[in-house]
Amino acid sequence: MIWQIELVVLLIVIICGIGAITVKDLLGAAILFGAYSFMMCLLWAIMGAVDVAFTEASVGAGVSTVLFVATVFRTSRRTKD
């Protein structure tokens, strides 16, 4: 566990999280949430939780992003906030 790498990844995670809830386009929010999940996966690989890391990479980042994008295409991309 190297704290410099961890600090950088944690900063990227927080920036992606803030970006996912502030961007004014739902497709952009879904893609930023996918980036957030992949950075979380990297964080868990750094912390030694490899089983959680590959479950997050396949289920969290993969399936969640597909579900979000499918929902956005079946509804609308417009958002007010």
Binding site: M1, G17, A20, I21, L26, A29, A30, F33, Y36, S37, M40, L43, W44, M47, G48, A49, V52, G60, S64, F68, T71, V72, T75, T79, K80, D81
Partner: peptide, 29 residues
């Protein structure tokens, strides 16, 4: 709480869940 869009609310819920997972993994490290 604050976002009006329903998809934004669901993204917030997912972020909350991963935050709790981060807390538990940090306990075990």
């Amino acid at each position: 709480i604050a976002k009006k869009n329903l998809v934004k609310k669901i993204i917030g819920m997912s972020i909350l869940q991963t935050a709790v997972i981060l807390f538990f993994i940090s306990i075990g490290a």
